[in-house]
Computed example of a mutant assay.
Amino acid sequence: MISGTNEPCIILGIHGLENKPPLDEKTRWWKAAIAEGLTRNCGWSDGEIPFEFIYWADLRYEKPVVAEENDEPYHPDDGSGPFPRHDPADIAPVSTLMGYVYEGLDRLQTKTGVTPVDDIILKTRFDDLWHYHSETEFARNVRGRLCERIKALSGRRILLAAHSMGSIIAYDALRSLERDAPSVKVAHFVTLGSPLGLAEVKLKIAAEHGACRTPNNVAHWTNLTDKRDVATVTGALGEDYVPNDHGVHVTDIAVMNEYRRLSGEPNHHKSYGYLRTPEFSEITLNFVPSAVADLLV
């Protein structure tokens, strides 16, 4: 069943780590992944999705990734029918074990404020995030780009879909906006493959913004994670981020990110895989009923 209002709405996406293809190409690919999910999972036919993209790779990299250098472009999945949903029985025991091990390390790192494990993870796997936390001007420019667009869209209901490091940028931007522009609201904040649970990240948030909690300018926060995704090894965000002043809490949902590179190798962290999960498709349908529901077969 589709719910929501007839107010003008927009899906606003923000990408994650590493250099990216050009803005127009990346925008098309995010829209294509969302549309593929709607088609496969919900029987969507055709039409325009209200979508804009926040691109920040150019603030760190001189040139975008060209086609011949990209081993992870968007490409439609070869299957048919709905994409699979999370089944706890399908998760390899090693993923569960890693989660338990990191959970103990996370508590220790958070309590002591010493984060050697996260430092290694950030330097080796999340280099952009390392620079984001260590270069004030870069962080200010990235956040500023997102903040200005959210403010410009304040007359519309916003679904902010943030992948990977983009979820940290989005979180910081929302906490900044709640102080600097308290009238600006985001209807639904959706984090995809988010590393917001890393102890180092939580300590940075606490130092800058205070308690780790849902931003006060967010009406809903849904966190989609694939338990095989290394960025989400920390587990559910609801255990780390308390409700905001209005009682809004994080809703953690486990999903199956079935994206595969052209070589056939799986990448359970890829944005396109998250965007075409049944769970994200349902969020989209419930958010943009007037723009999408009328297009259903």
Rank of each mutant, 00 (worst) to 15 (best):
M1Q: 07
C9F: 04
E18T: 09
P22G: 03
E25Y: 00
T27I: 01
W30E: 01
A32K: 06
A32H: 02
E48A: 11
I54T: 15
A57I: 05
Y61E: 06
E62I: 10
N70K: 12
E72T: 15
S80Y: 10
P82W: 12
P82V: 11
F83T: 07
A89T: 13
Y102R: 08
L108I: 14
V114D: 01
V114R: 07
D127W: 12
H133C: 13
S134I: 02
F138E: 12
F138P: 12
C147N: 08
K151R: 13
G155V: 05
A162R: 05
A170Y: 00
Y171A: 00
A173S: 07
L174W: 00
A181S: 01
T191M: 00
S194L: 01
P195V: 01
L196T: 07
K204M: 10
K204H: 14
A206R: 15
N223P: 03
N223A: 11
G235P: 03
E239T: 13
P243H: 05
N244M: 10
I253L: 13
G264T: 10
E265Q: 15
N267M: 12
S271Q: 06
Y272N: 07
P278I: 10
P289I: 06
P289Y: 09
S290M: 10
S290D: 12
V292G: 05
L296Y: 12
L296I: 15
